[in-house]
Simulated scan of single mutants.
Amino acid sequence: MTAFALGAVLSAIPVTAMTRRMRRKLLLICTIVGFAIVNLVTALSANLYLSLAIRFAARLFGGVVWSTLAGYTVRMSPRHLSGRAIAFRLIS
């Protein structure tokens, strides 16, 4: 859990800033696929250090997914409810 949280702290803003020029749909698909791959490697890993490194990488993908979803949340909800949609996404 600590490696996962550390990855979130270190990556949330820089990785999102580095990917801001990419097409959102492609970025979301790539990050979801990457997230699935690192979770599969974690599930199959028998080495603690490899699992910690992979969990760190998983959070890099997870941070990008969550930052990308905010934009989709606003676009999917009615204009007058976009604030509520983001608040609901953050709570759940």
Score class of each variant (00 low, 15 high):
residue 47 N to W: 12
residue 34 G to V: 02
residue 56 F to E: 02
residue 53 A to Y: 02
residue 35 F to Y: 15
residue 45 S to R: 07
residue 83 G to D: 08
residue 10 L to V: 08
residue 54 I to Y: 01
residue 27 L to I: 08
residue 53 A to I: 02
residue 58 A to N: 06
residue 42 T to N: 12
residue 72 Y to T: 03
residue 57 A to M: 12
residue 36 A to S: 15
residue 80 H to T: 03
residue 10 L to G: 01
residue 70 A to G: 04
residue 31 T to Q: 02
residue 75 R to T: 14
residue 15 V to T: 02
residue 45 S to I: 01
residue 60 L to Q: 01
residue 85 A to C: 05
residue 69 L to D: 01
residue 45 S to V: 03
residue 74 V to C: 09
residue 10 L to A: 05
residue 22 M to Q: 11
residue 77 S to C: 12
residue 37 I to T: 05
residue 5 A to C: 06
residue 75 R to D: 15
residue 81 L to Q: 12
residue 60 L to C: 10
residue 92 S to E: 08
residue 10 L to E: 06
residue 55 R to F: 02
residue 3 A to K: 00
residue 37 I to G: 01
residue 11 S to Q: 01
residue 67 S to A: 15
residue 35 F to A: 07
residue 39 N to T: 12
residue 32 I to R: 01
residue 15 V to F: 15
residue 20 R to D: 13
residue 81 L to G: 06
residue 58 A to D: 00
residue 25 K to W: 03
residue 14 P to H: 09
residue 16 T to I: 08
residue 5 A to F: 14
residue 68 T to R: 01
residue 81 L to D: 10
residue 86 I to H: 00
residue 73 T to R: 07
residue 48 L to T: 12
residue 46 A to R: 14
residue 82 S to A: 14
residue 50 L to D: 00
residue 63 G to Q: 12
residue 41 V to I: 13
residue 39 N to L: 13
residue 17 A to L: 12
residue 74 V to I: 15
residue 4 F to W: 04
residue 80 H to G: 02
residue 31 T to M: 15
residue 88 F to H: 08
residue 7 G to I: 08
residue 41 V to Y: 03
residue 74 V to F: 11
